[in-house]
Design a protein around this nucleic acid. Structure first.
Lengths: 339, 339
DNA sequence: CTGTTAGCGCCTTCAG
DNA sequence: CTGAAGGCGCTAACAG
């Protein structure tokens, strides 16, 4: 249990004042080059490590970033977190990650917890059923930066990091149309969330542009779980006039949808073409391989963290409100109909 | 920027001393029921929130747990973290997560960073190429609890949380043997890691018990990536005497192995049966569905966190050295040969 | 059962 | 360019 070295120990060893040592360890301009060097060298020699608590207490800053995500256990979210961790770590920040489990109540508790642990900023992807963001008010009121990613909320004080979900939804749908589909179903989540409403808009727009009718009966709202995918398939097959194409807003759902379709003896893509969303590893494994949309999770995580850290370090309220990442459509056999 | 309420404010409002308030906010026994209530009520009323930095500074404790994992972006690891987060959060601890990216150098840096942020304990799954755990010495020397999970290292001071990898490897292999396989290949990772060496031992033991010869040429060592799975398949097919069964130590590899085998026109499981490991969602999607071993990731995360927290809160060096979680074999079509 | 006191280690005015 | 001094908010002796 070796004793902790403090700046006082260094000061004593060097016959300096603690204040000077403190400055020497930083970038303080009013310190001579050589004394700074002596201080830094001695600090290393003695195995000094800063006590962040003392420093945080003094500065009221934690060097910690709070993260709230709906769920951690998906490939997409794991990639996002991985990206955030990488950037944050490199910049000397720590991440505190919490899961809302898709519930606004839990999200609310998480916000409070993170507030209490004095995070310097917040990176949030909203829960399934969050209606407003008043629970973030205590952050906004204090001017603590709040950045949304993926499932975002428009707010003048907040930056949003997204992909162009409207365009993405349009592209996927257009692709199915190009393959000759005339009745395209859409399996999606809670349209209170931008990601789903925007994709739905894109879907509708593509239909409209192609002169295809929009049929509300072909839109299936669910929680996008494995089971929901299977149920969606059963539901669509039971329709008086079943679809000849399905656009699911995530790959898990798409893949489970395909499974049930195949079990029902439907040929994919000849009878029903399928497209998913996210480019989950699943999409490369299902047969036929799933056409999907590449959602750059790692990049989104990196960008979100970098944006927040820039705000924190420069202490500036950047004027950027929305950052849109590039996506791309990945065409695979599940949607390639021989015309 | 509303002012922060401190225990002094509460003390003043209640005409008490800060010390009493501090005690009242805790479970301190020497406080009258009613004054405790007055304190708690007033604190809530004034919107008091504890300043953890001050408290940590005073107590030299951070209420933070450091986590080091090889990679975050797998379903398995995301489940583990999810479990840890749940337990830690409930117990008032925060997690600082860092990735070694399978490199011992990065792992070393992570250890230092976490040490500097004064985590109360460490949960670690070792990187691919870590040879010894001397870089954890500064933790061990200070008696900071260190718990390994999944990829563990035997050490008297550390608890390990694992599944019985020997038994698991044995069971998977035995299952393939039961299906009539005579030449079973094994695709695995760095056998410096217990998870791989134990499974290999189980594999060998099962072969031995069945009177089947062990053939080193049938063991393929790789990094268990998607690409490695594909390469393993090509390699095995090119052998003068190819296998009739393959046991891969993760599902990603197994699935990509199957893909290549299928492309080569091999019928699975008739010509070559395949089994994986982890019960990744992938395994239910590949066709035929992959026989695999259910690795309880979430439970492992929960158990690891709970074990650490128990140590921290009771401040006891429990005598338990290894905790073994239950696993089960999940049999699916990829291995079911009609005899 | 409650109050007094003395720091935890650091940073930041204010003075030299 | 460097030093002295005070305090961030909390807790744990030590006294009553």
């Amino acid at each position: 249990m070796s004793k902790q070295i403090t700046i006082y120990d260094i000061a004593e060893a060097l016959q300096l004042s603690p204040a000077t040592v403190s400055r020497g360890l930083k970038d303080h301009p009013a310190i001579r080059k050589d004394t700074r060097k002596r201080i830094v060298d001695k600090a290393r020699e003695m195995g000094y490590q800063q006590n962040h608590f003392a420093s945080n207490l003094r500065k009221s800053k934690s060097n910690t970033i709070g993260v709230i995500v709906p769920r951690l256990n998906s490939y997409f979210m794991a990639s996002v977190i991985s990206g955030m961790e990488k950037v944050a770590n490199a910049a000397g920040y720590n991440l505190i990650i919490s899961q809302s489990i898709e519930s606004k109540e839990k999200e609310f508790t998480n916000v409070k917890t993170l507030y209490d642990s004095r995070v310097d900023g917040l990176l949030v992807s909203l829960a399934y059923d969050t209606e407003d963001i008043s629970h973030f008010d205590l952050f906004l009121a204090k001017g603590i930066p709040l950045i949304f990613f993926d499932r975002v909320f428009e707010h003048p004080q907040c930056t949003s990091i997204v992909i162009d979900n409207f365009k993405a939804g349009y592209e996927v749908t257009q692709h199915l149309i190009d393959q000759g589909c005339k009745r395209i179903a859409h399996v999606t989540g809670n349209i209170m969330r931008n990601v789903y409403s925007d994709r739905l808009r894109g879907y509708k727009q593509a239909l409209a542009n192609a002169g295809l009718p929009f049929d509300e009966a072909l839109v299936y709202y669910c929680n996008l779980s494995e089971q929901a995918g299977a149920e969606a398939a059963s539901h669509l097959l039971a329709l008086p006039h079943p679809p000849d194409g399905v656009f699911c807003t995530n790959d898990t759902t798409a893949v489970n949808c395909m499974r049930v379709l195949k079990q029902a003896g439907i040929r994919i893509p000849e009878q029903i073409a399928v497209a998913g969303f996210n480019n989950d590893p699943l999409s490369k494994v299902i047969e036929p391989n799933l056409t999907t949309l590449n959602y750059p999770g790692q990049e989104m995580g990196e960008l979100a963290a970098a944006t927040l850290i820039r705000k924190l370090d420069r202490n500036e309220g950047s004027s950027i409100n929305t950052l849109v990442l590039r996506h791309d459509l990945i065409v695979r056999e599940s949607s390639l109909r021989k015309k």
